[in-house]
């Protein structure tokens, strides 16, 4: 759901850009405080990981295929602010190397896929985890639901931006984007749960960094 240029108008592009810059500045500050600038190589490698994971396709209904987004996974494994930085890096490289998503629309794309998706999934995950008194099943349920909402929320945000720009009427944009991503979200949710259960079995110490 990378928005190309031409689909959102300049006011929407500028507004989303300003919000994104604020969020990234905050993320830089917070991660600097928590991890130190010394964690930079690690974050670079993990951003490359998200990028590589997005290359693996999975089948969706009717012969089409979707790919993993990874925002929820990054948020759960690494915490929201680190995830914001990593997802933003992925989106910047996708724009500047692969022309996925427009230059002017970069702010909107980062907001949808790198910020909204991260925070929605993280707080749903954390809410369910604390509500169910934090055992392994609670983590997996929280991750699954969080991942589904991350995809649907970012698709809806994308549709709202397009509708506000006057490109596409509300009654087309919302069903088209959100409708398709209700199904894509199921794939995302299943994969996130599978990845998390593998990590819980092999390197449970990685998760202790987060919800401690």
């Amino acid at each position: 759901m990378h928005i190309p240029d031409g689909f959102i108008d300049v006011p929407v592009a500028v507004t989303t850009f300003v919000v994104t810059v604020g969020a990234i500045a905050c993320a830089v500050k917070t991660t600097n405080h928590n991890l130190g600038e010394k964690q930079v190589p690690m974050m670079g490698v993990l951003a490359a990981f998200i990028f590589a994971a997005q290359m693996l396709n999975f089948p969706v209904v009717g012969g089409t295929s979707g790919h993993f987004l990874g925002a929820a996974l990054a948020a759960i494994l690494l915490g929201p602010w680190t995830a914001v930085l990593i997802m933003s890096s992925v989106l910047v490289v996708q724009c500047l190397v692969f022309q996925d998503g427009g230059l002017l629309a970069l702010g909107a794309n980062i907001l949808n896929m790198g910020i909204i998706s991260v925070f929605v999934s993280y707080y749903i995950y954390k809410g369910i985890y604390t509500l169910l008194k934090g055992n392994k099943a609670a983590r997996l349920i929280g991750a699954g639901i969080g991942a589904w909402f991350s995809v649907v929320a970012s698709a809806t945000a994308c549709a709202i931006e397009i509708a506000i720009s006057g490109t596409s009427p509300w009654e087309i944009a919302i069903p088209a984007m959100t409708g398709i991503h209700i199904f894509v979200g199921i794939g995302e949710s299943l994969i996130t749960v599978a990845v998390l259960s593998l990590v819980l079995v092999t390197r449970p110490d990685l998760l202790e960094l987060q919800v401690a």
Partner: peptide
């Protein structure tokens, strides 16, 4: 999921 998980651990 297992592929991506393995990739994550290797990357980490």
């Amino acid at each position: 999921g297992n592929m991506i998980g393995t990739l994550f651990i290797r990357s980490y």
